[in-house]
């Protein structure tokens, strides 16, 4: 499903070059629930950003289906971000002046879905992640962190992506809410046959995924 080959990302800052992702290669099968662990600054977020086409690699290949994401340009990249992946961020990143429902509808609007369909699907997704009707019309500022992260998972699922990328989705949550969010992701991976790649600090969580990749200074150390 996902085939990463010799992926390298270097940042150039004032003469200094940092190789955040250093020749990483791995594959993840469809429907697999995998985790990436590693110390702070080991390149986890950078790797995820490359996989999500939020940033372009210095070299290497990211093959999903028949496409090499590293070779895609402009419209194809937008299309890829829009409907082939779903991103979940550590700090939720919901649009603050839109309600939960409107936030979930946003990617569908970008994908050109008609308004009635959008609303119907957004409501269904929010129901699935356990956001009640009265909370669906609330703005993010008036929801708890756990609720916001569940809205953001619903948003990631909006255009039925085959791959979900989550960067420390439980990082800002207490253990109870963290567990709830994790279980939600786990359930999705199983029921929808969605591939999930989750970055986490929490070894407990990592231990419950199908597979764990460990990054050390940008290099991958396969565990197990």
């Amino acid at each position: 499903m996902l085939d990463v080959q010799n992926l390298i990302k270097t940042f150039r800052t004032e003469g200094d070059t940092v190789t955040a992702v250093d020749n990483v290669s791995f594959t993840v099968a469809g429907g697999e629930f995998a985790s990436i662990v590693g110390k702070s600054g080991s390149g986890k977020s950078t790797l995820l950003a490359l996989l999500g086409a939020l940033d372009t690699p210095t070299s290497g290949h990211i093959i999903i289906g028949d496409d090499d994401i590293a070779q895609l340009r402009d419209r194809a990249l937008i299309e890829y971000r829009r409907s082939r992946i779903g991103f979940v961020f550590q700090s939720y990143n919901l649009v603050p002046n839109l309600s939960a429902l409107e936030n979930v509808m946003l990617p569908m609007e970008y994908a050109g879905l008609n308004p009635t369909e959008r609303r119907k699907r957004a409501k269904k997704l929010l129901d699935q992640v356990g956001i009640s009707d009265d909370k669906q019309v609330r703005k993010p500022g008036r929801m708890s962190g756990g609720e916001q992260q569940r809205v953001s998972i619903a948003r990631a699922l909006a255009n039925k992506p085959k791959l979900i990328l989550a960067d420390e989705p439980t990082g800002n949550l207490d253990s109870e809410n963290g567990k709830m969010v994790f279980d939600l992701l786990h359930k999705l991976a199983k029921s929808e046959h969605t591939t999930i790649l989750v970055v986490t600090h929490d070894l407990d969580i990592a231990g419950r995924t199908d597979r764990t990749f460990r990054l050390v200074d940008g290099k991958l150390q396969k565990k197990k």
Partner: peptide
């Protein structure tokens, strides 16, 4: 900035 980044991350085009 960040919000614009998020919009792009979830599939908005520059023009939109």
């Amino acid at each position: 900035r960040r919000e614009i980044g998020v919009m792009k991350a979830i599939g908005a085009s520059n023009v939109t």
